[in-house]
Design a protein around this nucleic acid. Structure first.
Length: 232
DNA sequence: AACCAGGACGTGA
DNA sequence: TCACGTCATGGT
């Protein structure tokens, strides 16, 4: 099975994931309903405005090496401060921003990252950032940059992560110590050039890895049903 | 009770 | 370039 076969198998198994998740307030614009996820299954025209794009960017930073539920709590706190927007977030006192970011961990660095990114965002004036521009922002590395480009701007950039590395290595497509750029190039080369497919692929990888790639040794009954590849 | 979560940065070799 | 320590909360 090639990588496109992997995609089709995961999609058949888990269905459309509808990433990127927004908070309910971000997805609907409602001021009060700040509860669960605002997924957008099979609405690939998403996001619809700069406010949603901005929330995706903050979420991408807040979820770095952190469970999404924790990042979401931080977004909720920002919303409760009416500061889930570039203009207002920069007016927060340092300790207030740190309080908001605290549930997502790394609160000192992430508060700084949000400030750095927001200053950059303001310079964009609504225009789309390039990948190199994003990488020049302190706190934005390759995965966060690609997440922003793919999910906030619908750009044709594959997002890969630690889960992707585990799966690609387990399927023996790439060595376990492969680089981010190697993974990205491999995925780009072996998948159709289709933005919604890219969005779903990464989301499906994460969903699948949560099931079978949390702890070594990995067993994957979906992609490796009968002990295949045991002998290298 | 370790171990992990949708990484990135700073440093030293 | 690359390996390694650091950042930190919350769930299993």
């Amino acid at each position: 099975m090639n990588l496109y076969g992997v995609y089709k198998k995961l999609f058949a198994t888990y269905g459309a994931q509808g990433w990127w998740p927004l908070t309910a307030c971000g997805a609907t614009g409602a001021a009060e309903s700040v509860s669960s996820h605002g997924y957008h299954p099979e609405d690939y025209t998403f996001p619809h405005n700069d406010r949603q794009r901005y929330e995706i960017c903050l979420g991408a930073i807040l979820t770095q090496n952190t469970a999404w539920v924790n990042a979401e709590q931080a977004l909720m706190r920002l919303h409760s401060l009416k500061s889930l927007s570039p203009k207002t977030i920069l007016h927060l006192a340092p300790h207030t921003l740190i309080w908001a970011v605290q549930p997502s961990g790394y609160y000192n660095v992430k508060a700084k990252k949000l400030r750095c990114f927001t200053r950059f965002w303001m310079t964009l004036q609504g225009t789309e950032p390039t990948r190199n521009q994003l990488l020049d922002v302190w706190g934005i590395g390759p995965e966060t940059a690609d997440s922003i480009l793919l999910y906030a701007y619908g750009r044709h950039e594959m997002v890969v992560d630690a889960y992707t590395r585990r799966i690609l290595a387990h399927l023996r497509f790439l060595p376990a110590n492969c680089s981010y750029d190697q993974m990205k190039a491999f995925c780009t080369q072996h998948l159709p050039c289709d933005v919604p497919l890219y969005q779903e692929f990464h989301a499906l990888i994460v969903e699948h890895a949560k099931h079978y790639y949390r702890r070594n040794p990995y067993t994957d009954p979906v992609l490796l049903p009968r002990n295949a590849g045991k002998n290298g």
